[in-house]
Lab assay of single mutants.
Amino acid sequence: MEVRTIKVFTTVDNINLHTQVVDMSMTYGQQFGPTYLDGADVTKIKPHNSHEGKTFYVLPNDDTLRVEAFEYYHTTDPSFLGRYMSALNHTKKWKYPQVNGLTSIKWADNNCYLATALLTLQQIELKFNPPALQDAYYRARAGEAANFCALILAYCNKTVGELGDVRETMSYLFQHANLDSCKRVLNVVCKTCGQQQTTLKGVEAVMYMGTLSYEQFKKGVQIPCTCGKQATKYLVQQESPFVMMSAPPAQYELKHGTFTCASEYTGNYQCGHYKHITSKETLYCIDGALLTKSSEYKGPITDVFYKENSYTTTIK
């Protein structure tokens, strides 16, 4: 009895394709271990004539594949690729409408935090270190965002349907971005203890939790000093293409032309909904596939993004 075979390709990165001759009487799992086709788990399936010449994702289970996976995804987590594939199996079914010149995501599976993050990423200057993220990001900007969303979920250790947080998501993504040249110098002034300067680099240099107003941050924000008295913390120097200011959701007025974009969060910790506000020729609110415009805006804002380049204080 002759062994019926077909020729397929296996890959971990969709760049390096490895030619395989597979036995049609055995499952993919018996031949390769966990195997995925377009995100779908085909591990328990036997090869079919229609699979001839198709590319299958496999887990990096030998040295060659491990090197290829690390170079593309910059992670050695053995569960990463499987999590990416199972997320992709959902995100490829989502709709990605162009809204006001940006790629958004039609609401499904509690994905409003991903839509808000995706919209924000198209408006701030950011370059990702893992080629996987950078490639998928370019495709997302062009309207094909399924891979990018699935990668975000995998890097953030999230599953489809789980509630997510924009600030946490951005923080994970910033860790995989090139923020080497970003720098922030802060000064804390206390009447009792004097003053202390701190220099922050990388992710810490672009994120701040405690106030939404970048102007206020430049002037000074009140913080408790270690001595128990009130101290003032203010920005001395900022070198970065953008800054992200966050605070627990509270009524906040966004003035046209003073910011790049913002995240609105309605609801409580267990259950809520994100919308995205962007400042173009007027203010726009993007909620999944829905767009509304207004000249002014007041609502429960939790993150505001500002364009920056270089700032030095005039406070002496």
Rank of each mutant, 00 (worst) to 15 (best):
residue 89 N to P: 08
residue 226 T to Y: 10
residue 309 N to E: 15
residue 8 V to G: 05
residue 189 V to G: 04
residue 244 M to V: 08
residue 302 T to L: 05
residue 169 T to G: 00
residue 110 N to E: 07
residue 165 D to T: 12
residue 91 T to M: 05
residue 47 P to Y: 07
residue 5 T to P: 12
residue 99 V to F: 15
residue 229 K to S: 13
residue 255 K to G: 01
residue 161 G to F: 04
residue 252 Y to E: 00
residue 206 V to I: 09
residue 177 A to E: 04
residue 299 G to R: 05
residue 291 L to V: 15
residue 129 N to G: 09
residue 178 N to W: 01
residue 188 V to L: 09
residue 101 G to T: 05
residue 3 V to E: 15
residue 300 P to A: 10
residue 206 V to L: 04
residue 130 P to D: 02
residue 278 T to A: 10
residue 98 Q to A: 10
residue 84 Y to T: 00
residue 41 D to M: 10
residue 114 L to F: 09
residue 273 H to K: 01
residue 86 S to Q: 15
residue 79 S to G: 13
residue 38 D to W: 10
residue 111 N to S: 08
residue 226 T to P: 14
residue 78 P to S: 13
residue 252 Y to C: 05
residue 157 N to Q: 11
residue 254 L to N: 03
residue 209 M to I: 12
residue 11 T to I: 15
residue 257 G to R: 03
residue 135 D to Q: 09
residue 71 E to R: 04
residue 41 D to E: 13
residue 177 A to H: 03
residue 6 I to S: 08
residue 152 I to G: 03
residue 172 Y to T: 15
residue 251 Q to E: 15
residue 204 E to I: 00
residue 84 Y to V: 04
residue 237 Q to C: 11
residue 171 S to Q: 13
residue 68 E to F: 06
residue 238 Q to T: 03
residue 282 T to M: 10
residue 299 G to K: 03
residue 190 C to V: 05
residue 78 P to D: 14
residue 5 T to V: 10
residue 296 E to S: 15
residue 182 C to V: 06
residue 257 G to N: 07
residue 239 E to W: 04
residue 257 G to L: 02
residue 117 A to D: 03
residue 169 T to E: 07
residue 17 L to V: 10
residue 217 F to T: 05
residue 144 E to C: 11
residue 19 T to A: 15
residue 216 Q to V: 04
residue 38 D to N: 11
residue 77 D to K: 08
residue 82 G to F: 12
residue 306 Y to W: 03
residue 34 P to N: 11
residue 63 D to Y: 08
residue 172 Y to F: 12
residue 247 A to K: 09
residue 55 T to E: 06
residue 228 G to H: 01
residue 222 Q to R: 10
residue 21 V to Y: 13
residue 75 T to A: 09
residue 81 L to E: 07
residue 280 K to Y: 08
residue 311 Y to T: 08
residue 314 T to A: 14
residue 22 V to M: 11
residue 279 S to P: 01
residue 300 P to L: 10
residue 40 A to K: 13
residue 252 Y to G: 00
residue 245 M to Y: 09
residue 264 E to H: 01
residue 243 V to G: 02
residue 294 S to R: 09
residue 33 G to P: 08
residue 53 G to T: 11
residue 66 R to C: 08
residue 311 Y to L: 02
residue 213 S to G: 01
residue 241 P to A: 09
residue 298 K to T: 13
residue 292 T to I: 08
residue 277 I to P: 10
residue 126 L to Y: 00
residue 67 V to A: 14
residue 304 V to Y: 03
residue 311 Y to E: 00
residue 170 M to I: 05
residue 270 Q to T: 15
residue 307 K to Q: 11
residue 204 E to F: 06
residue 170 M to G: 06
residue 88 L to R: 03
residue 288 G to S: 03
residue 1 M to L: 15
